[in-house]
Every structure is written in structure tokens, then in C-alpha cells.
Design a protein around this nucleic acid. Structure first.
Length: 424
RNA sequence: GUGGGUGUAGCUCAGCUGGUUAGAGCACCAGAUUGUGGCUCUGGGGGUCGUGGGUUCAAAUCCCAUCACUCACCCCA
């Protein structure tokens, strides 16, 4: 029979790796709590509308990367390719805005995009992220950026770059867009279809093109920073000033343009030198326009999303992977049928006492059971055989010291507890 | 969607210009030690050489196709 294989661009996270995932998730929960962000969980799939309207029809995500299918009721559903739109949908659907003026939400979730996989890019990948909804103040932008930095830094990660830019507000952007369109139409003689479409639909996106032929033209293009309304300019200036005061080094990148339509004002990206071509650890920004795309209400918001696979890759490259292997404190070695009959009972007693315990389940030879005990990393082997049963005791072997002594059944739990677990 | 690279044991790989039953290290299992692991020694199991076709007396090796994986472009986390 043919071996079944996982879907392209997906990954099995085996025990060897999952210890790092668990530690990273725990770390995220801890740091988020420190900033008073609360976890939100949303379904893995949504009505396609949530993304089509939220993210924007002309974005790469919506136009070619979504896992979209129709269910039996002929509704179009989509596996979520990002979390900001679902969080905003949930925020409004559950009228969180009625409970408090601002909400600080965070998530850890699997996401799906049908792209060609490569290092740091998968079809099912995982992000954690935060969404600070309800405040239009630059202080909220800063809080969000500092949160992202904090999570990376507190893991010990170094060699990161924070880049920021502003994509302005609608009053700044509308006239600028026209200006940019005119400029590109005038200077790009025969644009390829993608570029042509971008000039029409979202000229800002042309700015981050890496096409060598366009670099010259792009570098001379009019810049949004020079065409901001006073309000937008003040917002951006305030973000920069607060970041500087907080001691967060950043570089301004006038060409940093996020691929999603809902962004306004501040956008930012944190990249790592430890990664390959896909070096963005985290991307985010303010998205005051999203709520209106999904409803008839307006809510200012700012957030970020960070790729967990990429973060783990960067941590691994710097030897900073969090999490350790676990091992049981004790491994039972049962010799003979009478002892084996007591195995389940003793395992239960040990575990009820909070002592991580394992045993051999293959009825193997003593030698093989000790080998397994050794491999498990257990501190002690609890040997139970004919002799021990008769004397109502265990032979307790310390696997590191290679010493052995008898401990009465009645004393075994307290004996092991006094040894303080596997790390003593 | 487009390029490049790689497919031999569970893993890492060797296998020269095609030539008997395809190898090593690690891992796994067993024995040396009939109730004692780690070290050592001995032995063992495990491979349709990614798949299909072609050339040839003969293909893991050469040719074609195909699939998978991977890196990169695009784009993004």
C-alpha cells in the first residue's frame, strides 16, 4: 500500500520539536499577560467575506492564496489566512466595544495560505499576534511595537531590525495615490501585468517591488511622508519620538508598505539577520479602516502578527531555543507475572502522588527494561520482582549513581518525594 | 505560476569512467551478563537504489519523462 504523506507545505511537529513550541507558547502567554493583553480564540475557518472584505480583493492573499471551498450548504468558506480580520469580526459580533472602550487582545493560531513553500514559508503556519482595539492614539502604536520587541528580546533573540513607516490616513493617501499613479504611468514605459495592475489598484504596492529595472524609478518617486496631512504627520512624529524615548532603535523605511489594504498610519516590520530570504519575524501596523470594511462602525486599532516557525528558526540559529526535554522521575522494572500484575496499581499511586512514572509495556527481559529505563532519562528504577513482593519493598536503583537500596512499599512515595523529582 | 538543487536502510551518507548476492557509521533488537542500563565485544533484522519508460549482454550508475522534497523568485509571518 502506498505510504500516505502530509500535504505540501505542512509539518508534523514531533516531540523533539514540540517541547520548544510549548515553551514558546508559554512564553507568549506570560509576556502578553505582563502587558495585560487577553487571549482570544476564533474558528479556523470563516465566511470568505470576512477576508475578501477585510483584507482587500486586490491583495495577494485574497486573490491567489486562500484555501477557499464551498460547504454542503453552498456557502463559501475559507481557512483563515491571517488573524486580524477574524479578531475584528469577533470583536464586533460579540459587541466587546460595549464592555470597555479599549481591548487588548492576543492570539496564537494556525493559518493557511496556498503559496509555494520555502525556508520560513509554509502553507499551514502559526502566528501569535496582538490587536489593540479602540484607541487611535500613537501611544497605542508604541505599546504594540514595544510588546512585539519585548517578546523577542525576552527570549534572548538578538540581531533584529525594527523598520517603521507611515502609510498615512485617507485624506493624506487619496491625493498621494493619484500623484503616484501619474508618476508611475509617466515613468514606467511598459509595465508587466502585475505592476500595471498595482499601478491601477494600489500604487503604494509598487514601492516595495524589488524588480531591479524599477529601483531607479522608485527611488525618485514622490514620497508619502512629504504629502501627509498635519494630523497624520503629527501621529507619525509622535510614534517616532516615543520609540526613541523608550530606547527602541528603529530605522525609517519610506518604501515599507504592507500588503494588506486595511493599514493606516504606522506600519512596521521586525526582521532577523538569523533568517534566510524570508526574514520578517513580525509585521504589523495601525488599521483604522478595517472595522468599516466589516460593518458600519468605526474602530481604530493597531496590531502585529509574528511567525512562530520563523521565530523558532531564528532562536535555533542563535542557540536560544526555549524548553527542555522531559523525563519521568521513575521507571518501573517488573520481573515476573506477579510483579507485572501490580504494575498499573503502582503507577497510579506514584502519579497520584505527583511523581512522573513510566514502565515497560512489552513484557521485555530485565536487561531490556533497564535499557528502556536508562533511555527514558528516569532518575530511579523501581524494581519489583519475586523477592521484593515477598518483602513488601522495592529495590530502588539510582540510575546516575548506580547505587541500589531497598525501600518498603509504605515508604516509597515519601522517599521519592524527598528526592525532589528528576532534577535533584 | 517560474527557475536551480537533491532523491540509495529509520537517520547521515559512500558506491570510480555501467560489470556477480548494494555498503558504512549512527539508531534499533539479541547475546556475552538465565533479576540490572550507560562502556566494550559478537551477532541480527531492515533497502522494489523516488516512480515509469528507454539504451545495453548487463543500469543505483547513461538518456527521457514524472513525482516528491528543498532553496530561490513573487509575496509574506
Amino acid at each position: 500500500m502506498k505510504q500516505l504523506k502530509k500535504i505540501k507545505g505542512t509539518q508534523d511537529i514531533l516531540p523533539e520539536k514540540s517541547i520548544h513550541w510549548q515553551a514558546l507558547e508559554k512564553h507568549v502567554h506570560t509576556r502578553m499577560a505582563l502587558f495585560n493583553f487577553k487571549e482570544i480564540r476564533t474558528p479556523v475557518f470563516e465566511m470568505t467575506e470576512v477576508f475578501a472584505r477585510g483584507i482587500g480583493q486586490f491583495t495577494d492573499i485574497v486573490s491567489k492564496e486562500m484555501y477557499t471551498f464551498t460547504d454542503r450548504a453552498q456557502k463559501s468558506l475559507t481557512l483563515k489566512p491571517e488573524m486580524t480580520a477574524p479578531v475584528m469580526r469577533a470583536y464586533m459580533e460579540n459587541t466587546l466595544y460595549a464592555k470597555a472602550q479599549t481591548h487588548k487582545l492576543y492570539y496564537i493560531a494556525p493559518l493557511f495560505r496556498q503559496e509555494n513553500p520555502q525556508a520560513g514559508r509554509l502553507r499551514q503556519f502559526h502566528q501569535f499576534g496582538a490587536e489593540f482595539i479602540g484607541s487611535a492614539a500613537p501611544e497605542a502604536d508604541v505599546e504594540t511595537i514595544l510588546l512585539a520587541l519585548d517578546i523577542f528580546q525576552s527570549l534572548g533573540l538578538t540581531d533584529m531590525q525594527l523598520r517603521i513607516n507611515t502609510v498615512g490616513d485617507p485624506p493624506s493617501r487619496a491625493p498621494y495615490k493619484k500623484l503616484l499613479q501619474d508618476y508611475f504611468r509617466q515613468h514606467i514605459s511598459d509595465p508587466d501585468p502585475t505592476v500595471a495592475a498595482r499601478i491601477e489598484n494600489n500604487p503604494l504596492r509598487v514601492l516595495d517591488s524589488k524588480d531591479p529595472a524599477l529601483q531607479e524609478i522608485i527611488s525618485r518617486a514622490p514620497r508619502l511622508v512629504d504629502h501627509l496631512t498635519p494630523d497624520a504627520a503629527a501621529h507619525y512624529a509622535s510614534v517616532k519620538e516615543q520609540l526613541s524615548r523608550a530606547g527602541a532603535p528603529f530605522t525609517e523605511d519610506p518604501l515599507l508598505v504592507r500588503g494588506l489594504d486595511y493599514y493606516t498610519h504606522t506600519v512596521f516590520e521586525i526582521t532577523s539577520d538569523a533568517l534566510g530570504a524570508q526574514n520578517a519575524l513580525c509585521g504589523g501596523g495601525r488599521y483604522d479602516l478595517l472595522a468599516r470594511e466589516l460593518s458600519d462602525k468605526d474602530f481604530p486599532a493597531v496590531g502585529f502578527a509574528a511567525g512562530m516557525e520563523r521565530l523558532l528558526m531564528a532562536l535555533e540559529a542563535q542557540n536560544k531555543l526555549p524548553g527542555r526535554e522531559t523525563a519521568p522521575d521513575v521507571f518501573m522494572v517488573c520481573l515476573g507475572d506477579a510483579a507485572r500484575a501490580e504494575m498499573a496499581t503502582w503507577l497510579r499511586r506514584l502519579r497520584d502522588a505527583g511523581i512522573p512514572a513510566d514502565a515497560d509495556f512489552l513484557k521485555r527481559s530485565p536487561k531490556a527494561q533497564f535499557r528502556e529505563a536508562n533511555r527514558s532519562g528516569a532518575h530511579f528504577s523501581l524494581i519489583l520482582g519475586e523477592d521484593e513482593l515477598a518483602r513488601r519493598c522495592f529495590s530502588v536503583k539510582d540510575m546516575r549513581a548506580s547505587t541500589q537500596q531497598e525501600i518498603a512499599f509504605d515508604d516509597i512515595i515519601s522517599y521519592l518525594q524527598a528526592r525532589g523529582g528528576n532534577h535533584s
